[in-house]
């Protein structure tokens, strides 16, 4: 199987492109996911991913064909609407944030599934390939899809690099950021929008159900290796990239396996390794520290 993977990677341009784009997606999710985790917005990412489904279906119903850019615009629209509604509910009603996220996530996803069933019942609808958006199918992506995704992911990584210092302060201490003259509201809005875009470009390869995992798992794995935000972002990006590459390769060579679950399983493997041997409060490090403390106490 490893042989097959190498062959595909070395000789099939289509595979090369798919792998490159899922790799960039993995980096972008790791980077944005790091900021989202520290901002305590990981769950918002999950809601956005699920909320993207009705947007995709509505866009498809409107134009009647599968044009990725239009579908992603639809997904972005409903994704942003979902974040806005979650904020509106938490600020104007007695409903707490976790309940609001749960409510919006399920209602939007339910609506999406209803629309999707409707589409697949239509003549020719079952060939639309829209059901790939549920669990992701990187192999089904066309060359243009791959360009769109790779371009957007590259842009996201660049913006995160440029605004690294500003976002760090904004997340650590928003009041101090304001006092330093940073446009806090603008930076917040920009971050939420970029988080939505990250999720949206990932859903074709990873699927709406599991996209949030690609934001969260590489990020929490990275936290076990470092106490510095810069390194955390780099490590999370690398774990995301590895997961993207491995998931896309396996799914491309063994046809029929959905990409999303493979990516998530790979990332989960990285998490278990990090959780066990990571030097910053990983399991083994903690046990050793505990033993040292016991020894010191007995002396």
């Amino acid at each position: 199987m490893i042989q097959d993977m190498w062959n595909a990677l070395l000789h099939q341009p289509n595979t090369q492109w798919v792998v490159l784009s899922t790799m960039l997606l993995g980096i972008a999710s790791g980077v944005l996911g790091s900021f989202a985790l520290l901002k305590k917005q990981s769950l918002i990412g999950d809601a956005v991913a699920h909320a993207a489904l009705p947007g995709i279906c509505i866009a498809y119903l409107l134009i009647g064909e599968k044009q990725l850019l239009v579908l992603l615009l639809g997904a972005t629209a409903t994704g942003l609407l979902a974040t806005y509604l979650i904020q509106l509910i938490t600020t104007t009603t007695r409903i707490k944030k976790d309940a609001a996220i749960c409510l919006i996530l399920s209602v939007f996803f339910g609506t999406g599934i209803v629309l999707l069933s409707k589409i697949t019942q239509q003549a020719g609808g079952n060939k639309s390939g829209l059901d790939h958006f549920i669990f992701g199918q990187a192999a089904a992506m066309t060359r243009n899809d791959v360009y769109t995704m790779a371009g957007a992911a590259g842009g996201l990584i660049l913006i995160a690099f440029l605004l690294f210092k500003e976002w760090k302060l904004l997340i650590f201490d928003p009041d101090f950021a304001k006092n330093s003259g940073l446009p806090v509201g603008l930076l917040e809005t920009l971050f939420s929008t970029l988080l939505v875009i990250t999720v949206v470009i990932g859903i074709q390869a990873v699927g709406v159900i599991l996209m949030a995992a690609l934001l969260i798992i590489p990020t929490i794995s990275a936290r076990y290796w470092t106490d510095r935000l810069g390194w955390m972002v780099v490590i999370a990006g690398s774990i995301g990239a590895c997961s993207g590459i491995v998931g896309a390769l396996i799914s491309t060579i063994s046809t029929g396996l959905a990409t999303g679950p493979l990516i998530v399983v790979t990332a989960a493997g990285c998490f278990i390794v990090s959780f066990t041997i990571g030097p910053k409060r990983g399991l083994i490090q903690k046990l050793m520290a505990h033993r040292v403390r016991l020894k010191e106490e007995s002396i």
Partner: peptide
Amino acid sequence: FPTNALDVILMGRYG
């Protein structure tokens, strides 16, 4: 938050 003392102090220079 994943940062060290020097880095937090540097935040005072961001403005």
